[in-house]
Write a protein that binds this DNA or RNA. Structure first.
Lengths: 189, 189
DNA sequence: CCTGAAGTAGACAGGTCGGTCTACTTTTAA
DNA sequence: TTAAAAGTAGACCGACCTGTCTACTTCAGG
């Protein structure tokens, strides 16, 4: 699988569970079984390993979400599927995403608050990407671009809110409640 | 104002901007101008200073939000006022809350993911408190407890989502967009 | 077989971490 | 006035931090 990927996998797992500044390089090395010099052959600093971990999480998460949504008819059903997907995630039924500790990108922005920092920017880019995915499906059931944008935005906020509620308050049904609200918004009759 | 409060104020400011694990005790001491022994006379460890900072933020934030909502008639208007209030916050018009770096409680849970950790519990308690505030006002305009709970939950998710979007993506109008959605939900006709 | 790339193991450097300790000064209150 | 309480300054501890360096091993390709 390659040492580089071993490092990214281990770093991501530890960063996600404990936060980035709480995890030292030495711990990543020990748990991945990789030598220190090898790390610095692949990455020029801890920060660049962090960037790689964020990028990897982006890929993992987006591909997972997109494929779940694509398994349903485009539009309303795919959008509703998103809430079922994150419900699985909250309840640790998605091994790919590890145990649920909230959103890695939100958590990471809490540690890199400067919006100009490359790590923060990558997190923002992830969220924007997810938003565009929602918008694409919203366009299937809306009569105008503006309306689609507003719908996608509403669903996006509900989803983010559910992630926060699930993590901070431990509400494992947060996704289902958000889905019920979303459902009323899409077919309000 | 007392050394203890100086320490809490400085710690909170630094923790909020940079995250908790990124800030050392020595930096808090230097910026507050307090001696190290004084810190350890008032707090038994860094962790207990962290707890005090979270508690202080809870007090600051809740009192601010509650007083803004109470400045409007109970029920619908107070609930809408919440979104105006956080809009001010996002745009750095609330000096009490410092510059906007997202939600301190969400960020902190990203660093203390164990739900049994006292710091995580305090963050959860804050969110629950805010939810109860919303529910109190929702009861004014709902015909049943269940309906009020659902409305409060929907508004809560929109608010949390807006905080995340404002911080991660730098969307300074997130609160106004959330307000527009909320407005349609409360009077859907 | 040999060479060179990639990896390992671990010492090392300079700095910071949380936390303790001592010695001195300031403040407060009886 | 005086004695206790509270605060200051800073040395010190062992642990850990990121990052560099050296010396040794593994292994694939020509």
């Amino acid at each position: 699988m390659g040492r580089r990927q071993d490092l990214i996998d281990t770093a991501l797992r530890l960063f996600y569970e404990h936060g980035i500044h709480a995890i030292g390089i030495n711990q990543v090395l020990q748990e991945s079984g990789v030598a220190k010099q090898t790390l610095y052959n692949h990455f020029e600093s801890k920060d660049s390993l962090v960037e790689a971990a964020v990028e990897h999480r982006d890929k993992l998460f987006f591909q997972w979400l997109e494929s779940r949504m694509n398994s349903r008819p485009a539009g309303r059903e795919a959008l509703m599927e998103m809430f079922d997907a994150v419900h699985y995630w909250f309840n640790n039924r998605v091994p790919t995403l590890h145990c649920f500790y909230g959103c890695f990108f939100i958590n990471t922005c809490g540690e890199y608050s400067d919006p100009e920092h490359p790590v923060h920017k990558r997190c923002a880019a992830h969220k924007t990407r997810v938003f565009e995915l929602l918008k694409r499906h919203a366009l299937e059931i809306c009569t105008s671009e503006t309306e689609a944008e507003e719908l996608a935005n509403a669903l996006f906020l509900l989803k983010e809110g559910a992630i926060v509620k699930a993590h901070v308050e431990g509400d494992l049904d947060a996704a289902l409640k958000a889905k019920a609200i979303a459902s009323r918004m899409i077919s309000p009759h």
